[in-house]
Simulated assay, not measured.
Amino acid sequence: MALAVFGSVLWAILVSVFSRDVGGSPTMSAMTVLLVAAAAGVVAFSTSPFRAPFSRPAAVSFVVLLGLATVTSVAAQWGPDTNAQNDFMALVTAVGVLVLGPYRPWREVLLAGIAFAVVNGVVWGIAAAAFPTSVPVAVVVLLASAPTVVLTTAATVYAATFVRLAERVQIRAGSYSVERADRDGIARSVQQDRVTILTRDVAPFFEELRTRESIGDADRERARQISDGIRRVMVADADRTWLEQAVLADGGERTVVTDPDGAIRGMDVDQRTVVRTFLRAALAAPAVDPAGVRLLVEPHAEDPSRTCFDVQMSVADSDVGIHRSFDAYLAVLRVTFPDLDVAVRPSSLALRFSYDQH
């Protein structure tokens, strides 16, 4: 999408320099190009995965910049409109609505499209009224607004459909991640611990008893030790949080999880899903050693109602490689936890964010 806006910048430059049908104002032409370039810069900066989400202020800035560019483009060629190909801003604003479609709610996309259509219709209508041609003013207004109206309809439908599909996926993913995945993770962990005890202690002990003619006090003492070991494993399973279960289930047996108060249980369904997805990807990454991952959950220093989650991770990769591997996950984390703080250095990745206790 950013490429489409940058293409609009190039188009604006070419039309302003090589396809002017009136002398107009070179200053206004330069201003138009600069405004379109600024709008492209807003999109490029705000849609970067490392800076997601594309916020409402950024979207408003984008709309205002393109709206002003529309006004200055008409002012730059103030006079009889003899070449419709010079009216490039009608299509640029239409493309601008498409750019907003994947990033903002459908209502905001619709409002942006209406704003662009109104601005286009008004400024070209004023120019057509000031310099009459064989084309009626009403037709000029319609032609100026039509591209934006058409693409606004498409972008609005896309945004609304995407939101509905995302909500369905979120519901399913949340249900699986917190209920079924936690249950499956606990079951696998418990099964693994039970199998370890059976193969290491219970089975050999029963095999010895089977070959003996009588059972003595030493055998009874060993049986009590084995039963105590089983109870300790069961207690440990019961005390584990969903985070510890998730780390174990994803191959993080050597990962250090520090959460003495079990505060991680305060995360809601969406937050758990996002954190678990990131940790699963991190622990499965070839450049990440699970033994070099440290997870710390502690009370917020300034707000007792919030909890801080700290991730320290050793990554055998450059900072560019770390961005390439984790930027998509960091974007989702930033949407879920707006105060996310990320520090990327060669061979290390550090995250810190906070959440309310639910």
Results as ranks from 00 to 15, higher is better:
V15I: 15
V9R: 06
W11E: 04
R306K: 08
V195I: 15
A84G: 03
Q170P: 04
T307N: 05
R210T: 12
V33G: 00
A238S: 09
W242L: 11
L248G: 02
R306I: 05
V22P: 01
F18D: 11
D319R: 14
S46I: 12
A291V: 05
E298L: 12
T152A: 06
G96E: 09
R172M: 09
M313T: 06
N83A: 12
F54R: 10
A146V: 07
V257K: 06
G252P: 09
S61G: 14
F131S: 13
W11Q: 02
V9N: 02
D239T: 01
V195P: 03
I226Y: 03
V288I: 01
V17L: 12
A117E: 13
R334M: 03
V335S: 13
G23L: 09
Q245V: 13
P57C: 02
Y103E: 01
P204N: 10
F162M: 11
R168D: 00
A94D: 00
V342L: 08
S189Y: 10
V274F: 00
A350R: 00
V71H: 00
F206A: 07
A218G: 13
V119N: 10
D259Q: 12
R180P: 03
E244T: 05
W106I: 01
A129H: 07
L143Y: 08
E167Q: 12
C308S: 11
F62N: 03
V60M: 03
D303G: 03
R231L: 13
A76N: 07
R220W: 05
T161S: 11
F50K: 09
P286S: 03
I215N: 01
D250I: 02
R232D: 10
D193F: 05
V92R: 15
F309G: 08
E208Q: 08
T152K: 06
E253V: 00
T93S: 11
P338N: 09
S46D: 01
R107W: 14
A30V: 08
A130H: 13
T72N: 08
A84P: 04
M234P: 08
